[in-house]
Amino acid sequence: MAALVIAETDPTRSQLQGSSLAAITATSQMIAKEEPQDNEIHLLMAGFSSDSEAVKKAKGIQQISKIYVVPSPNEATEKLFKYGVAEWMAPCIQYLQDKYKFSHIVAGASTFGKNIMPRVAASLEVSQISDITGVEGSDVFIRPIYAGNALSKVKCTDPVKVVTVRGTAFEKAVLKEAQNLPVEELSFTPETNASKCVKWLSEEVSQSERPDLTSARVVISGGRGLKSADNFKILEALADKLGAAIGASRAAVDAGFCPNEMQVGQTGKAVAPELYIAVGISGAIQHLAGMKDSKVIVAINKDPDAPIFQVADYGLVADLFEAVPEMTKLLDQNAKTAVHS
């Protein structure tokens, strides 16, 4: 039995998202103990044709052995697959499962995977294991509960394991030179009521030159201490210097300082960059849940008792409105000195 990974692609549709690459790594750990001839990962790329750029690139993932593509019959259905509309994706995955009987069906725990996979599990009449951070065997997984204050080791006894994977907990599978992989083209249109009752209308995507929050090497997040949406500008200047992505605490999102896709935490995104700088963030458990796996954590807060300092490798008790611009300025000067010397 092979395992199936559901591919999510980037907005340009030219390559796999980091969440899918991490899901491939997690899946290879799940099947490591299976018989060698079954030790295969297959990839579903719904909405693509076999000659598309993304499929060519995906052939460079060494861990996979086969790709299924499901070309869209027309423009309208292309959107439904492209944006991962669950009412279309779930029956498509169920169709593949009926045909090939995979041991595992895995996706990243992004909003794409979270939206689709419970429908897949329900259609197959099994449970789902959400947001795993560890693999202990083909059917034993570790996942955080209670905002990451506890970890749960669970065994899945269902005939097929439907799993979503926390992207920051696994290395991303590396893209190399394209291999000669079989690509199977399937023609599929769902016949369900639900698939006929959904229409994709529009999207509003924030344009940003910055790196993606979940895969950036450096993340700077602002909290309620920033006091206004406008003040996030001082984080931007620092982010420019460090090539960082900008995130926010739930409090800052709730206060309307920034859009929800910037939220880091239990109910937002999980990040684990090399360097995480928390600015004006008190450190509620819901926020820590999304960033405490960062390699190095810096906290800048004027309240010396803020809980964020307990997890910070380097805490600076200071007024952020002075400290952040000073940091930007010093980095600027250092950069200039480096050029001169």
Binding site: S152, K153, V154, C156, Q310, A312, G315, L316, M327, L330
Partner: peptide
């Protein structure tokens, strides 16, 4: 089909170090 085998504490971070200035940071 889900059995909880055990529930345990996550690895604790060793934080709490402070720096005095932006330059030191």
């Amino acid at each position: 089909g889900i059995q909880t085998l055990s529930v345990f504490e996550p690895h604790k971070r060793q934080g709490g170090n402070k720096v005095e200035s932006v330059a030191e940071l």
